[in-house]
């Protein structure tokens, strides 16, 4: 399969990149390209212009400041998990980044690109010819969602590994636009709409991830269930962070809904409680309520549901071991 025709831009300044986005609504950003190019070969995404971010200066860094760990959006995943501070103090992020795809994806793929990846669906991530057996789906520009069997909705699933780890850390992101930048909680960039999963303003670019220092003061892990030991997207992924000082817990899951989800009901339930068999009893039920599982992949829903509880429980019991 070959790529469709497109214009290629390689701006050297961020404002220039933002200006292209404002000027051309059908332009798409490309960092490592591991997600976008496959979708383009499938004609699932056909941007008129690709704006490569690779020439932008100073977005490939992991930097410790007094208040936070700052990671440039163009930092390759491999560099993220090899960073000594990440590896020692933010294990959930190290585990998540090193569990993405294969080694090649980790070398080419960036942390910003991983966060902003497209949602996935068995009816969408297929060649154009394959998709011609059915009416064009809503996400690809048609009307019908083959997952929900309804018009005007999209139940493709967010499958990124890194997002749940960062959500559990309470990370924020910096969005840079033509007229400046703003810092927002990571959670706010996910729309929960399968068709347009990102809620980033027109002309804005995610340039930096900010992980508060507090994140390093606690236990964290990321559990991923996948078909094989390498290559695969998660069937379910779950990140857990538990503060050493306050006992506060933050839990996030991926591959269970149209966006990565925080398990707030469970977090609230765990507030002030000991981690023990009794509290674990509640995990399955509370976690299940956080997502709207839909059959967008070849994995069965009941198995996914089981894994959600299992991964969170297993992470929590690991957290208990550290307390």
């Amino acid at each position: 399969m070959r790529l469709p025709k497109f214009d290629y831009r390689r701006p050297e300044r961020i404002q220039e990149a933002c200006a292209i986005l404002l000027d051309q609504p059908c332009a798409k950003l490309m960092a490592g390209g591991t997600d976008l190019l496959v979708n383009m070969k499938h004609r699932a995404e056909t941007p008129s212009t690709i704006v490569s971010l690779k020439a932008l200066p100073d977005l490939d860094f992991v930097q410790k400041t007094n208040s936070a760990l700052r990671i440039g959006a163009l930092t390759p995943l491999k560099k993220v998990y090899n960073d000594p501070f990440v590896a020692a103090k933010l294990p959930a992020l190290a585990i998540a980044a090193s569990s993405v795809g294969s080694y090649h994806h980790q070398t080419m793929g960036t942390i910003g690109g991983n966060l902003c990846q497209q949602t996935r669906c068995k009816y969408f991530n297929q060649s154009k010819w394959w998709r011609s057996s059915r009416p064009l789906c809503f996400k690809a520009g048609g009307e019908l969602c083959h997952v929900a069997k309804r018009e005007g909705v999209c139940y493709s699933t967010y499958c990124g590994d890194v997002a749940p780890a960062l959500l559990a850390f309470g990370a924020e992101v910096i969005l840079t636009g033509a007229h400046g930048l703003r810092q927002v909680p990571l959670e706010e960039i996910f729309s929960g709409d399968g068709k347009t999963p990102l809620k980033i303003g027109r002309g804005e670019i995610l340039t930096e991830i900010v992980i508060p220092n507090q994140a390093a003061d606690g236990f964290s892990t990321y559990g991923k269930s996948a078909n094989r030991g390498s290559i695969d997207f998660p069937i379910v992924g779950a990140a857990v962070w538990r503060s050493s000082s306050t006992g506060e817990s933050r839990i996030a899951l991926t591959a269970v809904d149209r966006k990565p989800v925080r398990a707030r009901r469970l977090e609230d339930f765990l507030e002030g409680k000991q981690l023990n068999e009794e509290t674990f009893q509640a995990v399955d039920g509370l976690v299940a309520k956080e997502s709207r599982l839909m059959p967008s992949s070849i994995d069965s829903l009941s198995y996914k549901r089981k894994l959600m509880g299992l991964l969170v429980q297993s992470a929590l019991s690991e957290a208990r071991g550290g307390e």
């Binding site: 068995k122 297929q126 394959w130 057996s133 094989r228 030991g229 390498s230 290559i231 070849i298």
Partner: peptide
Amino acid sequence: LYENVITEKGQVMNPSFLDYGFPTTLE
């Protein structure tokens, strides 16, 4: 353990190395 050409009304749902998922050297 791993492989199955899954079809839905005659259409193969996993026609890729990613979704078909045969074992790798790690397995």
